[in-house]
Design a protein around this nucleic acid. Structure first.
Lengths: 104, 104
DNA sequence: GTCTTTCATCGTTGTTTTACGATAAAGGAA
DNA sequence: TTCCTTTATCGTAAAACAACGATGAAAGAC
């Protein structure tokens, strides 16, 4: 049985995605491959500072990366990290997935 | 492209698992099948009221259920709900999983 | 050089989270 | 009935989150 601390990493990734705006941003980046902060500000009903803050939280989790390009910052998903999250998530629940629920 | 609101449900499930204690509780329940609050209090370095609060948050998300049995409350994972979460999660990222990272 | 664009960061506000101890309710045991 | 066990809930405090406007830095345009 894993101890408490072993769940910290998975919990941190889940926390990064615990807000619909951040899931939207990750999906948007997956679709567009890369984009700058301003594009997201146009897409979202939020102030620029708020979007920047969400980007910062995602960046801190490792799920996205940002590269400064002149005055702009170009963001993209770090698929290695995202895959790590997905793998952690699924291996945590590997015995649950597709198990048949019989008591109902 | 999904809009912001479409991510709310996945975000809520992620939030339920955004704390290592709650992941521990879910895993413990998956392993033991069912247990009462007091067992978890013995396992965890937390006050009874704190454990009860985490159980309440998980219950509110639907991932676990609790049945009152006399003075005790017996908790178990609702695998239908957990499967729904897992399915939502994986379908959100279905195009990512196992994609090869080429730029590094 | 000055202006403009782009974005991160600061400071603030209100809300939520996480933890605790204390209390109360509910049911079984004596 | 009177205890004891079990657990939910209340009240509280500290920290974190989510939002905003304002400011400042950095680089390209003029």
């Amino acid at each position: 049985m894993k101890d408490l601390h072993d769940n910290s990493e998975l919990a941190l990734y889940c926390k990064a995605l615990s807000n619909p705006v951040r899931i939207y941003i990750v999906n948007y980046l997956l679709k567009k491959d890369r984009c700058i902060c301003g594009q997201l500000v146009d897409e979202l009903p939020l102030a620029q500072s708020t979007v920047s803050q969400h980007l910062s939280i995602l960046k801190k989790s490792g799920i996205i990366r940002g590269e400064i390009e002149g005055p702009k910052t170009c963001y993209c998903v770090d698929k290695n990290v995202l895959n790590k999250f997905i793998t952690l998530f699924n291996s945590n629940f590997e015995n649950v997935l597709y198990e048949i629920q019989t008591d109902e």
